[in-house]
Amino acid sequence: MSSDGGSGAPWRSLTTAIYLPTAVSFIGFGAIVPLVPLTARALGASVAEAALVVALMGIGGFVGALPAGVIADRFGEKKSLVGALFVDVSCLLVCAFAPNTWVLAGAVFVTGLSGAMLSLARQSYLTVAVPLTHRARALSTLGGVFRIGSLLGPLMGAAVVSLWGLQAAYLVAAGTSLLAASVTMALPDLPMPEHEPDQPVRMMQVLRQHAHTYATAGVGAAALMLVRTSRDALLPLWCEQIGLDATATSLVFALSSGIDMTLFYLGGSVMDRFGRRWVSVPAMVIMGACFAVLPLAHSVLAVALFAAILGLGNGISAGVVMTIGSDASPAIGRPQFLAGWRLTTGIGQAAGPLLITAIAAVAPLGVAALTIGAIGLTGAGWLWRWVREPAAQPR
């Protein structure tokens, strides 16, 4: 098996060592995310301070993107995964017994850092371990596992809190991360690159060498992330604006998320068979068009229809951003490249809710929806222009 994804064991054989621990740890992570602001409030934080504590997790993930690439290159993907999971265990235990908001905030921030490490190392490992012919399915399945964890995690957290309280949820999450670390140790080691570099690979050197990729395909992928995350902010706000109550809003969002969660493997199969453009571009067109016409939805049925179609666009595009990045990654300096890729796309991920907030502060919410729709439709053309399909490799 070459370092570029040559022949090797079928990628499904990685289910136990990659997908199972990812699912287990992400369910635990999903369980505690809604509880962090409640814990901060219980420790005496104001509403604004509690919101800041929650934001620190995302900030940690953003700040940790480039260091994660350096660590993965230095220690390898497997050791980085195991180490990050043990850091997660420590942080969750600190959260469980935090004596004040500052300690909680620090632990949450470090959890964001370890999350960046986990995301990058999983992507880098699958890029190398899985044959190119199955790469999109492997990475789309990873994206699907994230979605499943996001759905099941809060349900588990609610059950644990109702029985044993807030602290117990963090202890259970620490247990899931510990279990995930134990299972991850069974990962087979990746082969060494066929050609070792004469000099250590420098992060800034890799970023400069691939600046054009970040500025072209990376910008398109960032736009896709922006449109995706806009659903989470815009859909509930629109439901509230047209007078739907919290129950109806939750059901509409559950419909969108349910459809989203069932389509990840279909999107991966299409990418592997026909190319990355045939998922990334239609997904952007579907989501962009939905946001553009969302201001016409004034009933629960209309909003539910648009939410379902948004779920379709988001679902088929699971893993496409990781796949495009993996396709573009070099054999030497891959972790550093993927770190830069995650930083680029992370800007888009963070920009969606911020853009909606900024527009809604000065204009009707419908203008925000039209703006996101325009970005989606423009981004579709950008992706068609700049996404490069990987060259076929002999098996």
Rank of each mutant, 00 (worst) to 15 (best):
F62T: 09
M261C: 14
L338E: 02
L354C: 14
A98V: 12
T15H: 08
T345S: 07
S119A: 13
G8N: 10
A68P: 10
Y170P: 07
G379H: 07
V94D: 05
M203C: 14
Q205E: 12
T344L: 04
D73S: 10
S140H: 06
A169D: 03
I18P: 03
Y265E: 04
L118M: 09
L151W: 01
T378E: 02
L118P: 01
V183Q: 10
G313Y: 00
V94R: 15
A392F: 13
P353W: 04
L151A: 04
P335N: 11
S326K: 09
G275Y: 09
A331Y: 05
Y170I: 06
F29V: 01
A55R: 04
G44L: 13
A328R: 05
V387C: 12
I324M: 08
S140D: 02
H210Q: 07
T141V: 11
R342Q: 07
Q199F: 12
S13T: 15
L266P: 00
F29M: 10
N314S: 12
Y19D: 00
T16P: 09
S7L: 15
R41M: 13
T213K: 05
E389I: 08
Y19I: 09
S140Y: 03
L190I: 09
A222D: 02
R334P: 11
G311P: 01
S329D: 11
A328G: 11
T127S: 11
P200E: 08
L118C: 08
L377V: 11
G381L: 14
G319C: 07
A50Q: 03
A297K: 08
S326Q: 05
G376D: 05
G58L: 01
L244S: 01
A105I: 08
R74E: 02
A369E: 00
S90T: 05
S269Q: 10
V285N: 07
I259R: 03
D4K: 10
T141E: 01
V300N: 06
A339N: 03
T249M: 04
R342P: 00
A17M: 05
A116Y: 07
A84P: 13
G6E: 04
L187T: 08
A304R: 04
L142T: 09
I59Y: 02
G58S: 02
S2D: 09
L56G: 02
V303E: 02
Q209H: 13
V70P: 00
W341G: 00
Q241W: 03
G83W: 05
L305D: 04
L104H: 05
M204W: 15
V270F: 03
L93Q: 04
S250N: 11
H210S: 04
I316H: 03
T176M: 14
V161F: 09
V252M: 08
A17D: 08
